[in-house]
Amino acid sequence: MDVSLIIFPGANCDKDTSLAIKKITGKHPKHVWYKETTLPKSDLVILPGGFSHGDYLRSGAIAAKAPIVKDLVKKSADGIYVLGICNGFQILTECGLLQGSLIRNNSLKFVSRNVKLRVERNDTIFTSNFKEKEDVDMPIAHHDGNFYIDDANLEKIEQEGRVAFRYIENNSKYNPYNPNGSLNDIAGVYNKNFKILGLMPHPERAVDKITGGDHGAKIFESMFQSIS
């Protein structure tokens, strides 16, 4: 599996993501600086978390206009897999690869803590190692994670089963269980052919039991097993 990681100025989860990939696949992904214009040969491209371009204008808006993203949009039409984590998710909505938008958290606060998530389906390349409707813990750290989309498209996303992860109630362990006000408690969504996933939680920060859990590792394991 050839993995590329696009690095924008202001990214801060690129090293963790690279380590997570190394831990599971045995080799580091290719690091691609945002000023490049063409992606190297890749089965999977990851947009890591962070604060690209300082979150100026709107989170992910300026990164979405980088030439490398234009190439990503082109290549995703040819069928490569794309994963956007946190700021990467925001960039995917801004460049149009995913529907919806991530707006300011309803609390107005930057929220950094664990959340309980439900894996809505386990028949995609990103989730094949999870049990059906499995509940998992993952950390979040964002200011703009409030998933918004108009009613008609929200219904469509739900009908087509394109919600990947949902924040769920968990006996007040994490309160409020929906940390940002996302519509329908949505934490992650797929595109129409399930080859592109964007999520606000950070799976790369949950790949080791000694640093707060390993539920995120299953996403990387699923991708590795499904693609290679």
Partner: peptide
């Protein structure tokens, strides 16, 4: 249309 505003929101 291309950058300053996000037509979704």
């Amino acid at each position: 249309e291309q950058l300053l505003a996000n037509p979704i929101i």
